[in-house]
Structures are given as structure tokens and as C-alpha cells.
Nucleic acid binder design. Structure first.
Lengths: 195, 195, 195, 195
DNA sequence: TATGAATGAGTATTCATTCAT
DNA sequence: GATGAATGAATACTCATTCAT
């Protein structure tokens, strides 16, 4: 069980995204996912331990490279300032590139029970670590306020990005999301106040 | 039906909060709520139309005055700066005052798929309007950057507050939440950068 | 209990007829009957043992005089032939006089469980006896075939009358029912065949 | 869903007949039918849309050929007189052949309030048409009174047959039903009166 | 590997009846 | 007598998971 191999593994995950995006979390039965994937119900259980495992694997597969992509990209930047802008831009671009997936991760999977949400948080932990490193770097380089509370700053960045993406998804993804990175970057780093 | 009167009405709502906080949204059966409230299953239906009506009434009863309380409190403030600080402090204090309720509204009720989410959004709409007014006031008074995008600023504030509270709840409410208002206020208004 | 006295007793029975005719047997809850009667739910149980007792009492009260009326009327007739015609005419006239009641007895009460239907049959027993007497009289007077099987003849008469009335009710009582007595009388006594 | 194939489909229908005949319509729970059929509750829903679908399918499967059988049989008869006798005999014989089924169709299924009654009426409609044709044929051949009212004659035949069968069922099917066809035939065609 | 038929635990809601006032 | 708030038993249907083929 759990043979994370073969084309069917990915077929099933993609089918889950499609079904959840189309019918919603509570109407995404295993049988429906199996039909969408073109396999028998029982086949699902050759690749996944149970239904929850489909959802967490979905999150892992689809979001696993999410953070890595960001980390790689910002390496090329010189300043913390630039790094932050690129982090946000890349965050938005990646979600903008797969709107169906955005619906699933921003809206539908949040209806799942608390256990699944804890696993999602685990996956996000790498993202929070990255932000933490950036904040520390900013503080050490003298660019950020040295009194900054890392945890709060991190929650502020993540909470903001998440809320902005969720609003975009709820407005049917019909405006340019990555264009918002720049003004947000300015607001996060410079605050609301005039200088 | 729907008598919305008598001590039993409140007994049942309080029982629902207790049961959901203790067992989670998906394990909060009507029978369990009835037992906790000390009434028969059928009695629930003398006071509520159906199970969902319990949850929406819970939200209305418990959170209905949330925004109004904040709006009233900040009226006494002179400056936008003070208003923002008081908004955040009051936001945190109200949730801190009933930790069980915080668990229910921040984590459990978000798993619902129904009209309840619409009702939650209704309440939030009033909150977003209030934030909007504050932001505009800040811009007009020359305190905020006149180029500030209201929608983004609003999402930044709300996303930050929500994320901070959710983290506090997931850490079992074991630190002082309202004490975070001040540093957050500084970060939101002044940004991460040193001045 | 079961004090078959007072105006409320009749109020409740009339309310039951109205409610059943309007909403159907399966939607005729005790609470609905009580409201229609203008009494409290509990009051019903001062006059009736239980819900089934309302229905059997309804049948007794409303249909009890049914047979007696027929019996009295046909006493004035000279011949069996006349008696039969008058029996059928009176049967139809009585049901035609209260169409709501006809709906209840012909359609709705038949959906009741087998126990109630047995009680209804008890009440009808007097009617069958009357028919039996008439058939015997017809045979003894030499008017009917002496070989006639009383039981079958009785079932034929009752089955025919019942089916004719039921069809009339299902066609919304919109044609003249008692006018059918005469041709039916001729068919029952003379048969389908030409003479 | 609704595979209408395989031995289980018939097992379930037969179990429904058995359970309803034994415990009555209102005590025929799905779980009881499943146990009698030797399958799990959920299996029922692989073969039937819902509980009502079991009952309508039961009626279709068991009574669907009822009228057709009669129609085929009487084709071989020469005279209307013979046709009528055979119609009645076949009607009785078919019900006599499965007494449990007779209980279900004559008594229990009549307590239903649903589409089932419409379905029953549909089947009966074909029967009434057949009777109509016979009556017309009798009139045209000069055998029946040309003044005969088809509708009334039809209701008289059907009402009589139905009443006779119902009485037989209520007397626990303990006498010879089809033997009654002959005397009834004589009474219907020749009337009660001596000739 | 793959199938898909079969499983059976789990739950919101109705409504006849009671009984304290 | 009269009330009506409270009771609680009873039931169809879904769907994640299994296992014989």
C-alpha cells in the first residue's frame, strides 16, 4: 500500500483536484474521484491508505515544490527587500497558474476536519521557516527593525498573503493576482503611514 | 417553533458551544448537544428549526455584537492611530474572553459548508466596512499614505488579525493574546523597516 | 377519559374530518386537529383515548346513523325491488350530502393501518346484515333466484356501491351520484344481459 | 444504481413481499427486508433507488403481467359470456396462486400514499380498458342490453371482484376463491332476479 | 495489479402522548 | 376541566473501505 509510483498515482490526485474544484469538498466521494481518474474504487486503495491520504498527498504533491520554488528563486536576489518582493510575486504566480488548485487549497480543503488541517500546517511549516530566515536576515542586515517579533511578523505576512489569495479565489480569479505583490510589499515593509 | 425565548434557548446554544469545542464540528450530534443542555432531543426542535439553525443562531447570538462593540469603543478615540490600536485590542479581548467560543468560531465552524458561512461573511462584511472607513479617514487626515489601496489594506489587517488569533487558538490559548495588539499595530502602521 | 360528552367532542371530530380532507390521512397530526378544533393538544386526550380513537369515533359518529337511516327509509317500501332501489339511492344521497366526509371515508381512512380498517369493518357489519335480510326476503318472496349465494350477493352489492362512490370522489364529486342508483339497480337485479 | 439484474434483485423483492405480508406495510423497514433477503442494508440501494422503488418494482414485477395474462387467455373464447367467465376465473386464479402476494396487494400496499398508488392505478387502467372492450362487444353482439352504461358496468365488475378477493384475503384465504367465478358470473350477467 | 459488488455503522427529525400547572 | 411544553423512540440512506475474483 502507498506505492507512490505509477501513472495512476498522479491520475488519482489530479482527479481529486478536479472533482473537489467542481463539486466541493463535501461532495467529493471516493467513487467520484475514482470515476474521474478512470480507475476502480478499489484501485484507489492500492495507492493511498485512505481518503484523507489522498488529500494530504494532494497537498504534498502540489504544494511541496511551492516553497522550494520560492526558495530557489529568491537566492538570486541581493537584498532582503528584493527577496520579499519576489517571495510574494512567486507565491501569487504559482497559485495563479493553476486556478483549480487554488480553489481546492484556499477554499475547499479548509472544510476538512481538524486532523487534515494539522497535516496541512506541517507542510506549511517549511514556508514559515523560510519567512523566519528572511525576517532574521532583515533584522541582522539593519534593514528591518531589530525589535521585530519574528513570530508575529511571519503571521502577518502569511495571514495577509492567504487572505488576499482567498479573496481573489472568491471573486472567481478574475483579476490579476500577481500584480498585487508590489503594493503589498510596500505596505508590509513600509506600513500604512506616510513617510 | 423558533420561540427564541426562555432559558432553554440559551441553554442549548451554550451546550452547542461546549460540545463543538470539546468534540469538534463533525462530532457534534444533535443528541449530544441535547444531553449537554439537559433536554430531550425533540426539545431542540421547539427552539430551533434544524441543526443548522442552532449554529447560525449561535453565531448571531455570540458574535452579533462583535463589530458593534468595536465600533462603539473606537468612537472615543481622537486619532486614527489610536482607533486602530483599540480596534485590534478589542478584537483580541473579545475572543480572549471566551476561549471555548474562539475555538468554535476560528476553527470548527469554518468546516461547515452551508448558509452558516454566508452568515459569517455577513458579519464580516460590517467589519470590513468599518476598516474601510478607518483607512479612508487615515488617508484624508494625512496620516496614511494617500496612495494606499483600501481593499488590500483591509485584507492585510483582517488576514493578519485572523491568522494571529487562529495561531493562538491552535496553541491552546495559552499566551496573552491582547498583548499582541500593540506590536502588531506598530508593524501594520509602520512596516517592518527601521525608520 | 373518553367522556363522549360536551361540545368539544364534536368539535374535535369535525376538525379531524376537515383536516384529513384537506391535508390527507398521513398529514393529519393530532396537533393540527387540535388547532383546527380550537383546543389544546392535551385536551384531545380528555375526550379520546388516542389518535386511533378519534378516527374510529369519527367513523362511528358519522356513519353510525348511515345504516339506520337506510333501514328506516326502506321500511315504507312494499317490494324488495323498491327497497333495493331506495337503499342505493339513500346510500348515495348521504355521501353526496357531505363531500368532505366522503373523501375521508372513501379515500383517506383506507390508508390507515389494518387495525383501524378492522374496526371500520365492524361498523359496516350492520350494513351487511341489512343487505343479507333483503336478499333473503327477495329469495323467499320468489323475486330473487332461490339459489343465490347470500354472501356473494352481498359482496357484489357492497363492492359495486363502494367502487362507484370511490370513482365519484376521485373525479372530485363533480357529477350527480344519486342519479346512478337507478341504472345500477337495474344492472344488479337484472344483470347485463338483454331479456 | 438500479441495475435490475442479478439474483439479489429478485431476492429483495421476494423478501419485501414476505416481510410486508408478515408484519404489515408500516412495519416493513428496509433493515427488516434486507435481513430477510440475506443482504446488507446498503445492498438494497445498489438495486433500488429508495424504499418506494422497492414497492413499485414489486408491483410491476409481480402484477405487471396480470392483465396481459387475462387478455391472452380470453382470446381463445368464442362468446362474450365465456370471455367474462374466463376473465373472472383467471383473475381469481392468479391471486390464489400466491396468497402472500394477495395479502400485500389487496391490503397492505393500499396503505401507501405515494406514487405507488398511481402505479397501481396505471395497471388497473389497462384492466378497465379490457373490461370496456368486452362490454362493448357484448352490446354489439346483441348479448348485452344495448342501453348498458359502460362505465357503471365496468365499476360493477371491478368493484365486485375486488371486494370478493379482499374478503377472501381477510378470511385468511381459507376457501376456494376461483370456484366463486362461476356463481359470480351468473349473478353479474343474469342479475339477482329469477328468470 | 485491478476490479467493483458488498458491507454496515452512523444520525437528523417527527409526532403521539404525558403531566405539572 | 384545560393547557402546551416537554418527551424520546424510531428509521431511511450514504459512502469509505474491503476482498473474492
Amino acid at each position: 500500500m502507498g506505492k507512490k509510483k505509477g501513472p495512476k498515482y498522479n491520475q488519482i490526485i489530479d482527479a481529486a483536484v478536479t472533482v473537489i474544484a467542481k463539486h466541493g469538498y463535501h461532495q467529493a466521494q471516493v467513487a467520484k474521484i475514482a470515476r474521474e481518474a478512470g480507475v476502480a474504487d478499489g484501485t484507489i486503495y492500492l495507492y493511498f491508505k485512505n481518503k484523507e491520504d489522498i488529500l494530504t498527498s494532494l497537498f504534498e504533491e502540489k504544494m511541496g515544490r511551492f516553497v522550494e520554488t520560492i526558495r530557489t528563486k529568491i537566492e538570486s536576489c541581493q537584498t532582503v527587500d528584493e527577496k520579499f518582493l519576489l517571495l510574494m510575486t512567486t507565491h501569487f504566480e504559482q497559485l495563479e497558474a493553476d486556478k483549480q488548485l487554488a480553489i481546492v487549497t484556499q477554499l475547499e480543503l479548509r472544510q476538512s476536519n481538524t486532523d487534515l488541517r494539522l497535516k496541512i500546517n506541517d507542510i506549511l511549516k517549511g514556508y514559515l521557516t523560510l519567512m523566519d530566515e528572511l525576517i532574521t536576515e532583515g533584522k541582522e542586515s539593519g534593514y528591518f527593525d531589530p525589535e521585530l517579533d519574528n513570530r508575529l511578523a511571519r503571521q502577518m505576512i502569511f495571514g495577509t498573503l492567504d487572505e488576499v489569495v482567498t479573496n481573489w479565489v472568491m471573486k472567481d480569479c478574475k483579476y490579476d493576482l500577481s500584480a498585487l505583490a508590489k503594493p503589498l510589499h510596500q505596505m508590509l515593509l513600509g506600513g500604512f503611514c506616510k513617510r
